[in-house]
């Protein structure tokens, strides 16, 4: 008989993994195509959660229903940030990318603190406490939704990159910019699109996260670190890797918290991370770069 506590810890870990997954997938798209490690990715999640919050607070719109409005908002935010912040530095190299995206991250956090104060907010939804009970193991409905969302976006994006002309062109750009230009691909358009997709995927995770998580100017930073870890762990640019990485991170963290201690759980998580990188520096499913 399976220990109920262990089963519960694993299920909790899966749900936790869902949060990481949603952010990691967006991060991965941007890194995979535009080759920028977006340190502000978490802040796009934060901004999205605030927009979900205000849509709720002002016009009483349910966080899940507000996805409909959050899609055009996120696309607009992605487009504006690419056009005015990112576009001119894409070719400038890693140091500039880090400086820019870190700067944007601090700026967004600062603005959020000024406008909305560093207080913890939440959206009280009726379904926040709903749970499915399976043989004594409880599965929170809202957490399940974000896990499903993470999986769904990873699958949709994998299909997009594998089977569509635009997705294929984006993979080509990630491998060889000059050759892609020679194929007639509009590179700037691909960068813009990839950036918007990355921001959109992460932002919509905010809708699901806001149903059960706190909303605070620092919320993105806390999750970003784990999401980035997941991306490296799973293999840069690999969506399936990000999914598996998220699940492993979530489960290790959750099981270690239950059986060892919450304080040590992160130590164990990062030990696993270091061990993996020692033996597979390209990550779980990352491909060695061929020239």
């Amino acid at each position: 008989m399976v220990d109920v506590n262990l089963a519960q810890a694993i299920v909790n870990g899966l749900m936790l993994g869902g949060i990481y997954m949603a952010l990691a997938v967006g991060l991965n798209v941007i890194f995979g195509v535009v080759k920028i490690v977006n340190f502000a990715q978490g802040e796009f999640l934060m901004l999205s959660m605030y927009s979900v919050y205000w849509l709720y607070a002002l016009i009483y719109l349910d966080p899940i229903l507000s996805i409909v409005l959050n899609i055009p908002i996120s696309i607009f935010v992605g487009w504006v940030t690419f056009k005015y912040l990112v576009k001119d530095v894409v070719e400038k190299g890693d140091y500039v990318h880090i400086a820019l995206t870190l700067g944007v991250s601090f700026m967004f956090i600062g603005l959020a603190q000024i406008f909305w104060k560093p207080i913890y907010r939440g959206i009280p939804t009726e379904y926040a406490t709903w749970a499915i009970s399976l043989g004594g193991v409880n599965i929170g409905v809202t957490q399940l939704l974000i896990l499903l969302y993470g999986l769904f976006s990873a699958i949709i994006l994998s299909i997009f990159f594998r089977w569509t002309d635009t997705g294929r062109a984006m993979r080509a750009v990630s491998q060889d910019v000059m050759a892609s230009m020679l194929m007639g691909v509009n590179i700037t358009k691909m960068y813009t699109l990839a950036w918007i997709i990355g921001i959109l995927v992460t932002s919509l995770a905010g809708n699901f996260l806001a149903t059960f998580y706190y909303i605070h100017p620092n919320v993105g930073q806390d999750i970003f670190l784990y999401a980035w870890f997941v991306v490296v762990f799973g293999g840069l640019g690999s969506h399936i890797g990000a999914v598996i990485g998220s699940i492993i991170l979530g489960i290790v963290q959750s099981v270690a918290t239950m059986y060892i201690s919450a304080d040590l759980s992160l130590v164990i998580v990062f030990l696993v991370f270091i061990l993996l990188l020692l033996f597979r520096p390209e990550g779980l499913l990352g491909r060695e770069v061929r020239k």
Binding site: R168, R171, A172, D176, K291
Partner: peptide, 8 residues
């Protein structure tokens, strides 16, 4: 230098 896409 050919510049084919190695991972396609």
């Amino acid at each position: 230098g050919r510049h084919i896409f190695p991972n396609l």
